[in-house]
Structures are given as structure tokens and as C-alpha cells.
């Protein structure tokens, strides 16, 4: 019996692939994904041959040499500019409007003469401070310091909080024993305790990392507990029926299932981590955006204070956006089946 062969031709006459396989049913890797009929939105090439978007060709019941050609009956894909237009975030058009309103309001307030410059500084002065601090590199240093403190704290807190949350969600006795004490820990006002933390851990990096971790661990832990508790018992049973190990249940069921809650917790924690770092810097520090706020206040340079606060906001926003982007890519399946 001759080896079954499938040839796929594109409408344009480009010869995409020839397969010679012994298997009657199987998956064959295509040399070029661009040659797939699905990539250009065409229907299956043949009832028994179907190419998938992942660069695979599924073949069934190929018993003799078959030649399959593609027709261009299917709807053509949208032109690039239409696809590009669809991807635009239209609400960004509002940004210049809102920005201009805020800026003009600020300018009006500063130029009204009711307030001294050290109470409401003129935006131009703040802009000048930004340029100065950008030019001598100190702004970057301050941002980097705060970022390092916030992210280290968040990282450590995430490790501890997810581990704790997982144990509490899975083992009843830990929930019973630990939860009251953990809530007690959370009830301590971080801002009030931060001078103590500085005394214990010094005025360097360590104390800020501790404060950032203390402020972020709770939302991360709650997110983990909720996420793990929400894992469907039906899916757990299905995994057990498939003789899955504990590790496999963790890896293939619990993590993906809890991912929406975990990312929600991370969204809250990531902005809080910046608050934690700044609070630590308020108390005692030699650099960082929180230090810059206190420094500006100390020398009565309000424009520097405003600049530092704006920068803190920007850092928070950027971190939040990064998590939001992570969420979009990891949870793309949630858009399935919705118009």
C-alpha cells in the first residue's frame, strides 16, 4: 500500500506543504504557520483534514493520496488598518481633555493670588524641579530606591502570604488555629508601628521592605484563601478520578483556577507596596520618593513635595498597569463565549 500523502495548496498557488505519513490519523507539524488555512480564516481544507491555529494539521482517514486546494470563498480578513483601529483604546482620547482641565485648574488656582507659592506652587515651578532633578539624576535614584523597597517587600510578602493562605484554605486545623492571630497582626496600624520598625531594622532598605511586606501580605493571603477555596469540588473529583498526584492537582487545577483571585489580590497589593515603602521613608530615610516628600517639606520647598507625590502616583500606576497587562494575557480564556 502506498504511503498516504496530503498536499495542501493555497489559492495564490503557493505550495505550502506535502506530507507523507503512514498514520491514518494524526497531527503533523506544518513548516510555516502562515500557510494554515485557519490563519487566514478559511474553513477546513477537507472534511478529513483540518489545520489548527497552533501550527498543527489534524488528519483523519487519509487512505490514499489526496490533493487539497484552498478556495477563497471564505470572508477575507479585515484590512490591517481596520484591525489596528479596533485595538485602539478609545478612552485614551479623554486623557488630553482631562489632563488639560486639571492643568488649567491648577494654573488658575496658583495664579489667582489667594495662595502663596509655598502653599499652591505654580505648575511651571514643579516642572522646573522635575527638569533639575532629572538632569542631576537624583530623580531616577529616588524612584529606583522606592521601587526596590516596594517590590522586595511585595515579593517576600507574596511568598509568605500565598503559602500561608494555601495552608489555611486546605487544612482546617490551620484555619482554626492561625486565622485569629493573623487578623490580630493585620489589625496593628502599619503607619503607627513604622517608627518601631525603623528602630528595629535601621533606616536603610530592610525596614522599608518589612513595612511594604507588612502592608501587602494581607490582601495576598485573603486572595489566596478565596481563590483556593473557590476551586470546584467537581474538578477536584475529576482530577482524583484521573489518579492525579497532589502536585498535579496543585499545578494543573489549583493554580490556574485561583489565578483570577490571585491577580486581583496582586492588583491591590502592588499599589499598597508603594504606600508601604513611602511610609517607611517618611519616618527615616536617606533616599526614595517618600524621603523627597519629607525633604521638600523640611526646606519649605512645596514644588519638590508636589513633584515627589506625582512621581509616587506614576510609580503606582505603572506597577498596577503591569499587573493588569499580566491579567489580560493570563486570563484571556475568560473572554471566551462572551459577545
Amino acid at each position: 500500500m502506498p504511503k498516504p500523502t496530503v498536499k495542501v495548496w493555497m489559492e495564490e498557488g503557493v505550495h505550502s506543504a506535502i506530507f507523507a505519513q503512514q498514520a491514518v490519523v494524526g497531527v503533523f507539524k506544518l513548516p510555516q504557520v502562515t500557510c494554515l488555512c485557519c490563519a487566514i480564516g478559511l474553513p477546513p481544507v477537507h472534511p478529513n483534514v483540518h489545520s489548527t491555529q497552533k501550527g498543527r494539521l489534524l488528519m483523519s482517514s487519509i487512505t490514499s493520496t489526496q490533493v487539497v486546494s484552498l478556495s477563497s470563498q471564505a470572508p477575507r480578513p479585515l484590512p490591517f488598518w481596520r484591525r489596528w483601529l479596533r485595538k485602539i483604546e478609545w478612552r485614551l482620547l479623554l486623557l488630553p481633555v482631562i489632563g488639560l482641565l486639571l492643568w488649567q485648574g491648577w494654573v488658575l488656582l496658583a495664579e489667582s493670588g489667594y495662595y502663596a507659592d509655598f502653599i499652591v506652587p505654580h505648575p511651571d515651578t514643579v516642572w522646573a524641579r522635575l527638569q533639575e532633578r532629572w538632569a542631576d539624576g537624583s530623580l531616577v535614584t529616588h524612584i529606583a530606591t522606592t521601587l526596590r523597597e516596594a517590590l522586595s517587600g511585595l515579593f517576600i510578602a507574596s511568598l509568605i502570604a500565598t503559602a500561608l493562605g494555601y495552608i489555611i484554605a486546605r487544612v482546617k486545623i490551620f484555619d482554626y488555629l492561625l486565622t485569629p492571630y493573623l487578623i490580630f497582626l493585620q489589625a496593628i496600624p502599619i503607619i503607627a508601628i513604622s517608627p518601631l520598625i525603623i528602630i528595629w531594622f535601621g533606616s536603610g532598605l530592610a525596614s522599608k521592605v518589612v513595612i511594604a511586606a507588612m502592608i501587602t501580605w494581607f490582601p495576598m493571603m485573603i486572595a489566596t484563601i478565596v481563590g483556593i477555596r473557590n476551586v470546584s469540588t467537581n474538578l477536584r473529583e475529576m482530577m482524583r478520578a484521573n489518579a492525579a498526584t497532589h502536585w498535579q492537582i496543585f499545578r494543573h487545577l489549583e493554580i490556574p483556577s485561583a489565578m483570577p483571585e490571585l491577580l486581583g489580590g496582586l492588583k491591590i497589593a502592588v499599589t499598597l507596596s508603594v504606600v508601604g515603602a513611602a511610609v517607611g521613608e517618611f519616618v527615616s530615610a536617606r533616599e526614595g520618593l517618600g524621603y523627597l516628600v519629607m525633604y521638600g517639606r523640611g526646606i519649605s520647598d512645596t514644588p519638590t513635595v508636589v513633584l515627589a507625590v506625582l512621581m509616587l502616583t506614576v510609580v503606582s500606576l505603572v506597577l498596577y498597569s503591569l499587573v493588569a497587562m499580566l491579567e489580560t494575557s493570563l486570563l484571556s480564556w475568560r473572554k471566551a463565549g462572551k459577545p
Partner: peptide, 20 residues
């Protein structure tokens, strides 16, 4: 998987999510 997609008549749906 390809074989089962074929015998269960699911060829062409392999990249769909359950919600679809």
C-alpha cells in the same frame, strides 16, 4: 487527541474554550 477529536466529531473545535 487528534484521533479522539476525529471520532467524537470535534475536529475544528479544538481551539475553542468550553464557554463557547
Amino acid at each position: 487527541v487528534a484521533h479522539l477529536l476525529y471520532i467524537t466529531g470535534l475536529l475544528g473545535f479544538e481551539n475553542h474554550y468550553p464557554a463557547e
